[in-house]
Simulated scan of single mutants.
Amino acid sequence: MKGASKRLLGIYERLYYHFGPQHWWPGETPFEVAVGAILTQNTNWGNVEKAILNLKKERKLNAPALHRLPAERLSLLIRSAGYFNIKAKRLKNFVAFLMKDYRGRMSNMKGEETGIIRGKLLGVNGIGPETADSILLYALEKPVFVIDAYTKRVLSHHDMMEHGASYDSFQKLFHNNLKSDVWLFNEYHALLVRVAKEHCRTKTICAGCPLEGV
């Protein structure tokens, strides 16, 4: 797309000036961030926080403990996150992978090449591109742009990309037109989520939007 780099940077600068830094992703450890990325599928962050707090109270928020924890018990602890039986299985799948391939350490995973890690994550049952990329960017600090429904909504509303375009197409728009920078990708994605929640809803609220007229 002609001028895509300039437009993307312009959108980012407007959002950053208006909202300021978003301090994403909330989490005390890379493992906690990865767990949050899996639990946040199809729910809001408030529900995820309750589930993570339950795991902390039970001292289960680490790979070895979750690996040993029966799925039924895990389901009860993360009940607030919704779809708890499904998400318990996904967490168990992720932890089994982490234990097997990286001895349960996120630091060991971080040391591997980004494309290799991404391929392995996508091979874990229940982890799709958005979750895999959230783990890569926010937990492992790899320069991978996360695409979600909010990102698609904002960019399509401003004629940067057709809403029905593929995940990869949206991601390439960022990767091909912005410098590969973890901090930039982190902040930009968080800002897109913020403006989407406040303005680019199902019924758009353009008044007061920092991107009005872009």
Rank of each mutant, 00 (worst) to 15 (best):
W183H: 15
K179R: 13
G104A: 02
S80A: 12
A165T: 13
T131P: 06
N54C: 04
S75M: 06
G111L: 07
G27F: 03
V193P: 01
W45E: 10
I135G: 00
L91F: 01
C200T: 09
R59G: 07
P210H: 08
V95P: 05
G20D: 03
I86N: 13
V195Q: 02
K100Q: 12
A4F: 08
P21D: 08
Q171D: 08
T131N: 04
L191M: 11
S107M: 03
V146C: 03
L211F: 11
F97V: 06
T114P: 02
L137R: 07
S169M: 14
R153C: 08
H158V: 05
N54L: 08
G164Q: 05
E162H: 09
K50E: 15
R118N: 06
M109D: 01
R14A: 14
A71N: 09
V182L: 12
G104C: 04
N85C: 04
I78C: 04
L61A: 00
M106D: 00
V35G: 04
V124P: 02
A139S: 12
L61M: 02
E130C: 07
R73P: 00
M109N: 00
G10Y: 11
Y167R: 07
A81L: 06
M109Y: 01
Y150L: 05
A149C: 00
L122I: 07
G10F: 11
R105A: 13
I117E: 00
K110Q: 14
L53C: 07
H199M: 07
I116F: 06
E72N: 05
V195E: 00
I11F: 14
G3N: 13
L9R: 14
V33I: 15
N42H: 12
S80P: 05
I52Y: 06
R105L: 02
K172A: 15
G46K: 15
Y167H: 13
L192I: 01
F174D: 11
C206F: 10
N44I: 10
K89Q: 13
L184N: 11
F84Q: 10
L98M: 09
D148N: 11
R7D: 14
N47F: 15
P30Y: 06
H189S: 01
G36K: 06
D181E: 13
M99K: 02
H67S: 03
H23K: 15
E58Y: 11
I205N: 10
Q22I: 01
G46F: 15
L136P: 04
Y138R: 00
F84S: 09
P129I: 07
R7W: 13
L178Y: 04
A63D: 03
K179I: 07
F185Q: 10
Y102A: 08
F174W: 02
R118W: 02
L53V: 12
K87A: 05
G111I: 03
I117T: 03
A165S: 15
E141T: 02
E130G: 07
E72I: 02
L39P: 12
E198V: 00
P26N: 10
F19L: 07
S80K: 05
E187L: 12
P70N: 04
E13M: 13
A207R: 15
A4R: 02
